[in-house]
């Protein structure tokens, strides 16, 4: 089973805790990830998603100059690079978030999303199935061969 490090995104948009909401909005509108990780000394301390920002907009009291810490989700649930994909999926099912920063040696090294993990597992299963089919066919051929030769073989050995 593949590990988180194989599918994680290494280029993560980050901002400092002291940053303004405006900077996060600009970053979100430019990148495809849909989230910004808030770091303190390269350690993830929070996360701001598009949804967090839209929620703030919906209140009608959006101030672009206020601190990002006002709307961020903190603390943030993280994964490690050596986690197996099915473990990661189990974690997602219990935590119910979509995006997870990846921490290696205490610093931010990447970002994984639920979607990436599900698609990676699906590809993995498809590959396994192809391999298993080939093994099965070889096995059947071998079995036929053995069954056809079984009696002559026994006779030959004098059993």
């Amino acid at each position: 089973m593949a590990r988180v490090s194989r599918i994680m995104l290494a280029d993560v948009p980050t901002l400092k805790k002291e940053a303004k909401i405006e900077e996060a909005a600009k970053l979100l509108s430019k990148t495809e990830n849909g989230c910004v990780i808030i770091v303190d000394d390269n350690r993830p301390v929070g996360i701001v998603t598009e949804l967090d920002l839209v929620r703030k907009i919906a209140t009608g009291r959006m101030n672009m100059k206020s601190r990002l810490s006002e709307i961020m989700t903190s603390p943030v649930v993280c994964m490690t690079p050596d986690m197996k994909l099915d473990e990661a999926l189990k974690m997602i099912d219990t935590k119910r978030f979509r995006k997870y920063p990846v921490i290696g040696n205490g610093t931010l090294v990447g970002l994984v999303t639920k979607n990436d993990i599900v698609h990676a597992i699906s590809d993995n299963v498809r590959l396994h199935r192809a391999i298993q089919n080939i093994v099965l066919i070889l096995f059947v051929v071998f079995e036929l061969f053995v069954f056809l030769l079984y009696k002559p073989l026994i006779n030959y050995l004098g059993a």
Partner: peptide, 10 residues
């Protein structure tokens, strides 16, 4: 999308 809304505010 959510992104379109954020862009609009910007």
């Amino acid at each position: 999308s959510e992104r379109d809304i954020i862009k609009a505010v910007l």
